[in-house]
């Protein structure tokens, strides 16, 4: 048991991303308000961005910019890995686009049903089906 806690302490970035991910998933599954679900989705996506960026970090190393007056060969081990950051720039763009599409759909749903509560919408749909 103690070993597990030490391991978790040493790799707390993974614990943090898993917690964030579960928060997001919880909101997406449990919440009935569509905007809250969308917020959950955003948290979920952000947790993965955090995961990527945190894996790039090296303790005590610096940002990957080669000094102007550097003459020795550049050692990759001396710098934080820039690639995950670059990948996450793309992922952030993707998550912003997802958020945009989700909010647009939510607006359309609100105009249609006059509510964003999923339970109310389903009740609405059921009564409609009953009528027809």
């Amino acid at each position: 048991m103690e070993q597990i806690f030490t391991a978790m302490g040493a790799k707390y970035n993974y614990v943090a991303y898993i917690i964030l991910m579960m928060v997001g998933l919880y909101a997406m599954i449990v919440k009935s308000n569509l905007v809250k679900k969308i917020i959950g989705m955003s948290i979920f996506q952000t947790s993965i961005i955090l995961f990527y960026v945190s894996t790039a970090y090296k303790t005590g190393k610096t940002i990957p910019i080669v000094p102007y007056d550097a003459h020795a060969a550049v050692q990759a081990a001396d710098f934080i890995n820039p690639l995950p950051h670059v990948l996450m720039l793309t992922a952030i763009v993707v998550s912003v686009a997802t958020l945009g599409v989700a909010l647009a759909l939510a607006m359309k749903i609100y105009r249609q049903y006059g509510t964003l509560e999923e339970d109310d919408i389903h009740e609405d749909l059921r009564s409609e089906e009953g009528k027809s």
């Binding site: 679900k37 989705m41 997802t98 599409v101 989700a102 759909l105 359309k108 249609q112 919408i121």
Partner: peptide
């Protein structure tokens, strides 16, 4: 739209 939003999630 509602089905699409669920699909999106």
């Amino acid at each position: 739209p509602l089905s699409s939003l669920n699909y999106l999630f």
